[in-house]
Design a protein around this nucleic acid. Structure first.
Lengths: 223, 223
DNA sequence: ACAAAAGTGTTCGATATACACCCATGT
DNA sequence: ACATGGGTGTATATCGAACACTTTTGT
């Protein structure tokens, strides 16, 4: 039997088929805290509880596309920093039926976000991660996202995804401090990121102290 | 409508349902190289090509259980170090139908493995990752596993999963060197792992040089 | 005695930590 | 003038890279 013949005879309904969703934790830094976009559920199951924005994976889209679709529908934003987190497959995680959830996280600067509307709202991520009253296993997904972010801050440039295109170093340092959960020394911080940034000739103004210079992220040097 | 009423009326067949598999890359160090267990496919699709051992996820089992099941059926081993890698969801990755693959990797010491039988065989992982002639996207999964291992070697204890319960430091160092792809200095290596090991009073013998002491892994200190 | 590999102490340089000080602005 | 936070130089501690040397076995 040739491969094409095999494929013609193949009956995919012979195999068990769970549903697959993509649930996305959208993080931003607001009010000196890492916050995550949650949805107050209007429908069963878990009506009234908070959950992450999620979509069923369409039969013709990739998982990344499904995540982008979910984010676009909630924020109107495209080209957000997005990364797959983990896949959750406990048979009891959804009371309706067997649902396997591929979780993603995304990072956006606060400035690029419109105020959330309708059932969407931002919540301190640490509180969601610690709460026992969140829909599905989404509390654990948020916890997983926080951990991943904290791990990657020090050896990648993900923190830059949380500031605008042009930013000051005090701003950027505050982001690092919030993600790491600790104060950093100004001088040391600047030495460490010096190679990752490019100065502009813009300065802030209006504050009752010395203006701060604005910078851009230096494009990654390949190799 | 109450939640239980909602659940009674819910028709899960209204939603798209891809198939979900778990594909597991079982790594070991053999012949001074990182090797991975591959299966020569007896059936379509990709008949005759190499693929990773995989199973369809049963409707009542977790993903971890599916991975353990796949490993047990190929190796007869239980309680192997196993970790989820990444989930692959391109619509074209399987020519039969839409299949989403949750990939895992596992690490075992060579000594605990029986010689592979039937269509199973060990292949140098780097070759599989570089090959363009592997079934599905399994070449990329292996590449992803190699990268993950290399990243985790330095800040976790995964290398210990590749040696027996009792091991010598030259043995362990060779594992590290193979995973990292570079020679290490004996003295520095020993200083670094000194806190992770406990000496036994066993020694190797028979070799035409000084015997080496055997060690065990020190149990993780919580906190 | 010698080869071979196990095992240990010490130096050197890079990096991170900590602190001290200067600078520019609004009030 | 001064309070406030932006911005920079310098000393110290810590860690890893590199090397030199000693030890124990089989032949």
């Amino acid at each position: 039997m040739t491969e094409s013949e095999f494929l013609r005879r193949y009956r995919s309904s012979d195999y068990p088929k769970p549903s697959v969703t993509v649930d996305t934790a959208l993080f931003t830094v607001r009010d000196n805290a890492l916050q995550v976009l949650m949805i107050r559920r209007q429908e069963h199951p878990f009506q009234g509880k908070l959950s992450l924005p999620g979509v069923f994976v369409g039969m013709a889209e990739t998982l990344d596309e499904a995540a982008a679709r979910a984010l676009y529908s909630k924020t109107g934003l495209r080209d957000i920093y997005t990364e797959q987190l983990y896949t959750w497959g406990s048979p009891e995680r959804d009371p309706r039926m067997r649902v396997i959830s591929v979780s993603y996280y995304a990072l956006v600067p606060e400035q690029s976000l419109a105020p959330p509307e309708g059932p969407a709202l931002f919540c301190p991520a640490a509180e969601i991660a610690a709460s026992g009253d969140i829909a599905f296993d989404h509390s654990r997904i948020v916890a997983c996202g926080i951990e991943r972010i904290r791990n990657k801050v020090n050896y990648t440039d993900i923190a830059f995804s949380l500031v605008d295109e042009e930013f000051t170093l005090p701003e950027l340092q505050r982001i690092y401090e919030i993600l790491l959960g600790q104060k950093l020394y100004k001088a040391n911080f600047r030495k460490k990121i010096a190679e990752k940034i490019i100065p502009t000739d813009h300065y802030t103004s209006g504050a009752p102290h010395r203006p701060s210079r604005m910078y851009r992220k230096r494009p990654e040097t390949a190799g």
